[in-house]
Design a protein around this nucleic acid. Structure first.
Lengths: 112, 112
DNA sequence: CGCCTATAGCTAGCATTGCTATATGTAGCG
DNA sequence: CGCTACATATAGCAATGCTAGCTATAGGCG
C-alpha cells in the first residue's frame, strides 16, 4: 500500500476505531491493522501525532492510566468527535463513490 | 469536499480519464467533473502540474496541437501508463475496501 | 546479570502533493 | 473595447503521513 494513499482519511479511521470505546494509541494501531484485514499497519510516528492533532481539535480527550507498571494514554471520543465522525463518513461516501465511478470508466462505451 | 481528500489518488483519476482516449488538460478537468457527478471540480493549478508529473514518470505522452488558433497540449496514455492504471485500480480496491470496513465499525456489536 | 523482544510513548525533519493566486494569450460576443 | 470562455503555466503555501531515532518498563532466556 502506497503510504500517501491514506492522506486525508486517517482521522476518520482513528475516530471510527475510538467510537467502539476508549483505547490507547498502541491498541489503536492493533485495531486498525485487524479491522482493515492487515491493509493498514500504521507506524507509531503516524498515529501518535494524529491523536494529538485530534485532541487539539477537540475530537478526542485523553487521560493517563498505569497498567502493569506501564504508562498508557487512553483516548476517548468527545461529542464533537462523534459529530466529526458522522461528517467523515459522509465525506468518505461521496468521495469513494466518485473515485469508483471514474476508475470504472472504460475506453469502448465512449458513447460520444 | 475537503480538498486534501484527493491526495494520493489524483494520478489514478487522470490516468483513468485518459484511458478513454487522448485529451488536453482543460478537457480532462471537464471529464473529471462530469464523470464524478460534480464531486471533483479540479483547479487548473492541480491538473497541469499533475499531468507534467505523469509525463515525467513516463505514464503519459504529450504533443502540441493547434485548434482554432488556440494552443493545446494533448496527453495520451503510454503503455507504462496503462499498466500503472491497472495497478492503481488494485490499490484503490484494497484501500477503499479497508477504509469502508473500518468506518462501518459500530460500538454495539463489540463481540468482546 | 545481560540481552532481546514486546509493549508504550514521543518528536524532529523530510517529501509529497494538492491548492491558491497570479500570469499570459487567443477567440468571440455585445 | 471590454468581458467571458478557452487554454496553459508556475511560484509558494499548508497539510499530512512517514522515516528515523529516542526513552522506558516488563518479562523471558542463556
Amino acid at each position: 500500500m502506497r503510504p500517501e494513499a491514506l492522506k486525508g482519511h486517517l482521522d476518520a479511521l482513528l475516530l471510527a476505531v475510538l467510537e467502539a470505546g476508549p483505547q490507547h494509541g498502541y491498541a489503536v494501531i492493533d485495531t486498525v491493522r485487524e479491522g482493515s484485514g492487515g491493509t493498514f499497519d500504521l507506524p507509531t510516528g503516524t498515529v501518535y501525532p494524529a491523536l494529538h492533532r485530534l485532541e487539539r481539535s477537540g475530537f478526542v480527550h485523553s487521560r493517563w492510566d498505569t497498567v502493569g507498571g506501564r504508562r498508557r494514554r487512553t483516548y476517548e471520543l468527545t461529542l464533537a468527535g462523534r459529530q466529526a465522525l458522522m461528517a467523515e463518513r459522509d465525506v468518505w461516501d461521496t468521495f469513494s463513490t466518485a473515485v469508483s465511478a471514474l476508475l470504472a470508466r472504460r475506453p469502448w462505451p465512449t458513447t460520444s
